[in-house]
Design a protein around this nucleic acid. Structure first.
Lengths: 334, 334
DNA sequence: CCGCCGCCTGTAACCGGTTACATAGTCAGG
DNA sequence: CCTGACTATGTAACCGGTTACAGGCGGCGG
């Protein structure tokens, strides 16, 4: 409509006061005569004045925005984390600046740099970057919380407690009468995959120390679960439970078992990891990740340090919750 | 570490040139002597200089960010739209500023205002706001694309083509031998629910004009589908197909039919709307929404108008895609 | 030798707010 | 009546960039 929208100086002129008074009046600050304030507010309304957040940020050195750098996450995972962040962020009066999908480390680094001056802090989930590469990429002086990073280095970190999740699953299986467990692992090199594999070995040592630790390779995808089961059947292995590193592979394993004529979950119990929506429909026993909570906590910690609290710079774990369904029936009470 | 991070003046001092030269050198602009440029680049690197995006935005009156105002969307829906936006936004060199979850119109309006000076344009999905309320809430001079708005008024709009989706489903059902279709509607007042209900009537008139238009109430949730089926069975209605207004209700309908002993999909075919991930697993015939594409198109249109193209201010529809699965078996070729 | 032109660079204004500091006015206490 | 404190307001610097404008300088044609 009109050329450009009203600035604070337009309001000042219209109300016949100085810009300082306008600023003070509109921010409810210091001492402003009630009558002056009323005049300013009226002028602002008639001019349709909306403060320019960018200018304010510049002069206050505070943007009230936090940046989020994520890899190319899929569906549920992405949406849950971001939802949690968004909830907390809104509650604390901040905004979220997204920068998703970064193919390689260079792009991710560039994305992080391009946020300097736009955000007060960063939440970074960058599987491609190691600790030192990350320190180089982070704009100096911008606090950060690392989510799911292999090594948070000197920063605050958030991570899923994979060990607790796997331990709960193994304990549950052993407790319901299973003895010969097999783990279908995630892709090598993936943080969660690696942790879950190691945790499986640890959990077996704790709950079934007399049994061997059996692990077959997988890839977090449905076919991976199918192929793993096919390999197991081919070598005629004896097992009565499968602990898949995530739900999708558990699904694949389940269908592969059934099409091969194996009684699942009767003869072979199956567990997953993640609790995707499908798991509920298929009755899959699994662990729920509380991703939204993790996102919210990451924001909460970041905002806390932004607002002066001590920066803990510690790694905080989010404990998954065991969800028992029908793929792990109890064998101990026949 | 060091007190505050380097500014352009620090670089200028270090390289013994003026700030203007630094700016020109780093932006690959105009005419800068190669040697000078090299010196500037070297200084910038040793000082760890990262440009301050906020300051740049202020002076250029361009933020290269676009704001997104969404209601509290759940899972798949939210994530798909945002994913599409993010993809396009990254490809065009922009950022995405999220402001999710706005309980009422007032909060949504406030969220939109708070974005002035932070973004170059807005993508708004605000079911609570009507056209005029929206025009008041929009900061002046900020172009906007409205997603799923009942009436885009004078703005550009994006919407799912509900009529095309319902028509495809009804055509498919009638084509496979069904005649007595029942629609389980969405909640009254919801845009998509209303459109789908009206479209169902229109589609029936087109493809099965001799049959009555039967509609029962629903609420987009699983129980809604169950309750609708219960009501139908209670009144002993004769029907051989159910067209649910979304997938969740279709699921509810399916399970309710089966637990009531009705042969589904043999005696009663069932269709949904949305194509949520579960639909594939349950073999539900439905239509796929291409939400990511809608988000991407919204961004593309917005960026186009920001970069000078003609602003079409037109309502653009995204056509859903029919996905035929097992809940609608063919009856015409016995 | 002069003037002009093109290349390179510097100075300073500007974007739209906030805020330290100065100042004018009012009022009470001594 | 003077002084000090306090309130209300204005002036101008500042945040960190971009860029219009003004030179300075060297080369070249006349």
């Amino acid at each position: 409509m009109k050329g450009r929208s009203a600035t604070i100086r337009d309001v000042a002129r219209h109300a016949a006061v100085s810009v300082a008074s306008v600023s003070r009046a509109l921010n409810g600050l210091n001492s402003v005569h009630p009558e002056t304030r009323a005049r300013v507010v009226a002028s602002a309304k008639t001019l349709g004045y909306v403060p320019h957040a960018g200018a304010r940020s510049l002069s206050m050195a505070r943007t009230h925005a936090i940046g989020v750098v994520l890899p190319d996450l899929h569906g549920e995972f992405f949406s849950e984390i971001v939802r949690g962040m968004d909830r907390e962020t809104g509650a604390r009066g901040y905004h979220l600046l997204l920068s998703n999908m970064h193919a390689d480390a260079e792009l991710a680094a560039q994305a992080m740099r391009s946020m300097r001056g736009r955000v007060d802090g960063l939440i970074v989930m960058a599987p491609q970057l190691d600790a030192t590469g990350l320190d180089e990429a982070l704009p100096p002086g911008v606090p950060a919380v690392l989510v799911n990073a292999r090594d948070p280095g000197g920063h605050a970190g958030m991570r899923i407690d994979n060990a607790a999740g796997i331990d709960a699953l193994v304990a549950h299986l052993v407790g319901s009468g299973r003895r010969d467990l097999v783990h279908i692992a995630g892709p090598a090199g993936n943080i969660d995959g690696d942790e879950r594999r190691a945790s499986f070995a640890a959990a077996m040592a704790r709950h079934a120390p007399d049994r061997p630790v059996r692990i077959v390779a997988g890839n977090f995808r449905e076919e991976g679960g199918q192929q793993a089961v096919a390999a197991l059947l081919r070598e005629d292995a004896a097992f009565d439970a499968i602990v898949a590193a995530n739900d999708m592979m558990a699904l694949g394993a389940l269908t592969a078992l059934r099409t091969a004529g194996v009684d699942a979950p009767g003869a072979v119990a199956v567990t997953g990891f993640d609790d995707i929506p499908l798991a509920r429909y298929l009755g899959l026993t699994t662990v729920r990740l509380h991703l939204a909570e993790m996102g919210a906590r990451a924001v909460a910690r970041l905002v806390d340090t932004l607002e002066g609290a001590e920066d803990a710079r510690t790694l905080e774990l989010v404990t998954p919750e065991l969800v028992v369904r029908t793929t792990t029936p109890d064998r101990t009470s026949p």
